[in-house]
Design a protein around this nucleic acid. Structure first.
Length: 208
DNA sequence: CACCAGGAATGTA
DNA sequence: TACATTCATGGT
């Protein structure tokens, strides 16, 4: 067993299966609606606490617009009010609409999108304005069950702390994890969640 | 009151 | 390539 697999085991032993906010993201399998909720969450959580994202998602749910199609039909201006708690709401409303427009106009269904394969999916979804590397990979991993490792600030800090590598750019780190783990989206989903849980936990201890 | 939370786009050098 | 700025709410 290599250091990456050991790290996963350690984290799982310490924190168990990802829970709370990760209940949905690490759920297998997910319904279509759940997948779309994950995609919206991936946009809304950009540089924002998950708590604020939850408030926004609740607003969307209460008003029955927790689907890409409804986002698309409503248009960016009308969803601003619902997602305000997540901050940067004018931008994010536009980003959410861009993503919805991308799926509705170009593919119609997630199933059709998946037919083009992982590489092409990533390339295409990165063209959506508002979807960068981390958001793209979060969507691919957590909504579309693709074996692609998500890199975020917590992952970088962990890589630094454990001295896993000195090449800290997104792509290098991603390949580092993928090359040292089984190509398994379930493992990737839980691992990334545990890395975030570990990172947050550590921040918490620092304050006390 | 100051600081920051699971980024990305845009602009500058 | 690398670094700065902008977007904005809610918790501590």
């Amino acid at each position: 067993m290599n250091i990456f697999e050991k790290l996963y085991q350690e984290l799982e032993k310490k924190y168990g299966k990802p829970n709370e906010q990760w209940n949905l993201w690490c759920k297998r399998p997910k319904t279509i609606q759940e997948k779309e909720e994950v995609m919206m969450g991936a946009i809304l959580t950009q540089r924002t606490s998950w708590k604020n994202v939850e408030l926004s998602l609740k607003n969307l749910k209460n008003n029955h617009i927790i689907s890409l199609k409804n986002i698309y039909l409503l248009g960016p201006k009308k969803i601003e009010a619902f997602i305000k708690p997540a901050g940067f709401y004018e931008q994010k409303a536009q980003y959410l609409f861009n993503l919805a427009q991308f799926f509705v106009e170009k593919y119609g269904s997630l199933k059709k999108f998946k037919k083009i394969g992982l590489e092409k999916m990533r390339e295409e979804i990165l063209k959506v304005k508002g979807v960068g590397p981390e958001t793209a990979d979060s969507i691919l991993l957590y909504a579309l069950d693709q074996p692609i490792f998500v890199i975020d600030e917590y992952t970088k800090r962990l890589a630094n702390e454990k001295k896993l590598t000195d090449k800290m750019d997104y792509f290098s780190l991603q390949k580092l994890f993928e090359n040292n783990l089984k190509k398994d989206f379930c493992l990737y989903q839980d691992f990334h969640a545990l890395i975030v849980i570990y990172g947050k936990n550590k921040n918490l201890n620092k304050k006390i």
